[in-house]
Amino acid sequence: MLRPVVPAWQDRTSWLVIALGVVLLLLPHRLRLRSAQPIQTALLAPLRLGASLGRALSDAKAENERLSLLAVRLSVENARHTAASHAEDAEPSASVNLIRSPVIGRDLTTFEHWLTISRGSRHGVRPGAPVITPDGVCGKVVACGQHQSLVQTLLAPESRIAVVNARSRVPALARPDRSGRLVLDYAPKDSDFRPGDTVVTAGIGTVFPKGLRLGEVADLPDRPGALFKSVSIRPFADIGRVEQVFVMSLPDSALPDSGAMWLENTTPPEISVPGYPANQ
């Protein structure tokens, strides 16, 4: 077997590299440290970049959560001011506690009708509490365990929300259709709805306070034979992708218009959580 011919210059260069290692070893300690610094900076730059990117990502996530909470607080504050400006006998504003909660489960058929959140009665969540996102209304709590709660979203077939057109103040009742949008019931035939109008909660049920953003008018299908106006609403909250919600914890004195019994108060389904009594 013939051995491959290796050019002598390759060997000589290789020995030079090995000798360089020996020279580096023989350098005085102080010179070694000084020469190592620029090499270290250059060679470890990707590692430092990765670490700083990780830190920046973590900071951005914390900042995002903070701003998200702030956005919800401002949204609630805005709703309260809107309600006050439309009510002559506005009550003094009560403090609203927002309970931030990650979404930890969804219904397995549509992913949009029911959410499970990781906050329960131990955290102050109560059945009937409104659930919102920074974009708009998400739904309401229908059952609570100690550490988990079940949320009925506004796209669940049983959901009904009393709403009002923020521009023309025409009231109606929003219910989901099967295409991920809402339709309005009982909107008078000659009522003033235009595409792009914002629809907010009316505050005349017993669940949602007045003025929470719900969605915008997407379409006004023409149905000549219908008794009421047909209005299609595109919800602001992206229920299918929401990962974090805020449960509004209102004091008893601030519960909206508890005298009026509207259709928002639909009966929640019988739900049993293992280990906890039903309808807790």
Partner: peptide
């Protein structure tokens, strides 16, 4: 040899007290 010298230099850079030892051994 160059590959050994290069990664040796990288390892030496992480701890200057060993400067040259990794270059030599890995090359």
């Amino acid at each position: 040899t160059l590959a050994g010298g290069f990664v040796g230099l990288c390892l030496d850079a992480t701890d200057p007290a060993f400067m040259g030892s990794h270059v030599f051994t890995l090359a």
